[in-house]
Design a binder for these strands. Structure first.
Lengths: 335, 335
DNA sequence: GCGTGTTACTAAAGCGTGTTACCAGACAAT
DNA sequence: ATTGTCTGGTAACACGCTTTAGTAACACGC
């Protein structure tokens, strides 16, 4: 280490000064000498060596189980990454994007941490049927789920999907709709999907409207799947005057399918989305939807993770953020 | 290292076997013993220690200069990340997301690499006025730009923005439009922005249409800025029958502004976008646009970077991918 | 029997930090 | 004078891996 030479002190002293180690006695003059030498040489500590010595990588992983295709069409990713970066930058950490194969080993998640390039991780859209998660629970690896799993002991940050979905469907019911279709955001193995469908059913039952399973279908994240679901609903011949689409992204496809079938929105069919993606308000007609605080969700997840990484056990295991009904122009009153 | 004990060999041998080091003689029986021992113990090499010993982090950085706000609203990020992950997974590398302050130090980029947590980097939407890039050029840090800078010696992957923009505007001209407004995707400091404006001007000049600077304005990446630009154009009182919007994302806002002003698309005003984001085809009317191969762009950038990291000097310094006019329903023929 | 290779493997020296244990000196209290 | 405490600093080991230089054993040609 040349800084030590230039400052005329030992490597130890350099390390102590530059890391501002507390409870150690170094004279102000020496501190200054070290700082000046480091500045002069443009010294940048080697993060890898630090990581090895301290056994902390100073990095967290954003772990996704989806395929690159699904990642590429994930509307929320930018907001989630934005939220994480907000927090991470303050804490001088790094952010790794990790993917895990759909048919991964039990050890898959653990490997990421055991290999020690991350200190903790945030798991996106966990799947109910993911056996590897159990291994994670048993370990003491700091982990935060974005999206809750009911029988999991892992920490999580989420909205109350069921209540939020109910709020959306209640709104349609208040407008006088009683034949309401439901397009879920994703296959039922992704936990948010059945929860939102449940909220849909809750609202119908509270209003004494019979649930018709034929009016429920499951999309697969992207607009295309929404297009296909909507066509299938229309082709089924079942009558409905409104659709609750549990994802704005999917709703984009649904709207296109309605237009293709010459159904006007909201005159013929009302549509309410979920998420409030940036385009929702700019689409035609502006989409009424449930706002999901995506960026806030990820920054909260990150804060929670940081606590776990410091060994602090947070007061609440499941952080639940509020959603909000955003009324725009895609739903109309039925007489 | 317990694997060594269990297999009854030295740490060296374990390392040699597990890394499949070439040109070294180890008997098949020993190899098997080592592999079995490693398997039995669930041995996972420590990536940090490997990085320190080999002086390679086996990670690349996706570096962005934008603020978290802009990152959160970046339509392309998922596709770019998807493209990178595609390549990275095959090569067993990791992906770090890095941000650099807008008013950063000259050394900012170099620090990332000097700190040795990445071996190379991909720079997103570089700015013309970024002095730190010069430092990067002088260094031998493997770097690939996504988006070209004219006077930069750095490697780059991009489309020909000028030609692509010209193609878009030519299409409008062919349809009979001659009063064509232009909304650039971003402030002129981002290189793609002036290039696309230049393509717009090229097309007009070739058609002997006078360029009216009052019909050109600059948005700022997001729909909101497109909304405002379009309102300003409408308020200016200048006549135009078509708008070339150099970003689909911005075009979303532009369309909303046109609707707000009771202009029908394409009956009153034709609009052509740029990028072909996933929602373009699902918007109403489906947006005619220029397709930017975003995912391909980032996977090519990644492949190029991998070559640089291996010390291979690629045949071409600037990879230019093709764009394509995607005709949908947002432009109409003028008699 | 001697050099010359070849095969199969290992000891030990890094990689660049953090950190523990220790030391020398100054000063105060006993 | 001895002991204890505080200050300011350092030597040396540890982190978990790769890699260089080397060794021991054996085969081969002459």
């Amino acid at each position: 280490m040349d800084v030590a030479n230039l400052a005329g002190v030992s490597r130890t002293t350099v390390s102590l000064v530059l890391n501002n180690v507390e409870g150690i006695h170094i004279s102000p003059e020496t501190r200054l000498k070290v700082r000046e030498a480091a500045e002069k040489l443009g010294y940048i500590p080697n993060a890898t060596a630090q990581a090895l010595a301290t056994r902390r990588a100073r990095a967290i992983g954003l772990v996704m189980t989806r395929s690159p295709h699904h990642i590429a069409s994930d509307t929320f990713l930018p907001q989630i990454i934005g939220g994480l970066l907000d927090v991470i930058r303050e804490h001088k950490l790094r952010l790794l994007i990790e993917t895990v194969d759909a048919n991964h080993q039990d050890r898959a998640y653990l490997e990421l941490v055991r290999a020690k390039h991350i200190d903790g991780m945030i798991l996106l859209t966990p799947r109910i049927d993911d056996a590897a998660l159990t291994k994670l629970e048993e370990s003491d690896v700091p982990t935060v789920l974005m999206g809750k799993l009911d029988d999991s002991s892992l920490f999580s940050v989420d909205v109350d999907n069921r209540v939020a979905a109910k709020m959306a469907v209640n709104y349609l019911i208040q407008l006088g709709h009683c034949r309401i279709a439901c397009i879920a955001n994703a296959p039922p193995t992704y936990s948010a999907s059945p929860e939102r469908v449940q909220g849909y059913k809750d609202a119908l039952r509270d209003a004494n409207i019979e649930v018709d399973e034929d009016l429920i279908c499951y999309a697969d994240f992207d607009p295309q799947s929404g297009f296909e679901c909507t066509q299938a609903l229309l082709d089924s011949g079942k009558a409905f005057t409104a659709i609750f689409v549990a994802s704005d992204n999917v709703a984009m496809g649904a709207k296109a399918a309605l237009r293709a079938a010459d159904k006007r929105i909201p005159d013929d069919i009302s549509i309410i989305g979920f998420d409030d993606i940036p385009w929702a308000q700019y689409s035609d007609p502006p989409l009424t939807t449930i706002r999901l605080p995506a960026q806030k969700l990820s920054s909260e997840a990150c804060l929670l993770l940081l606590k776990l990484m410091r060994g602090i056990s947070p007061e609440q295991q499941h952080v639940v953020l509020d959603t909000e009904l955003v009324v725009r122009k895609s739903c109309r009153q039925v007489r």
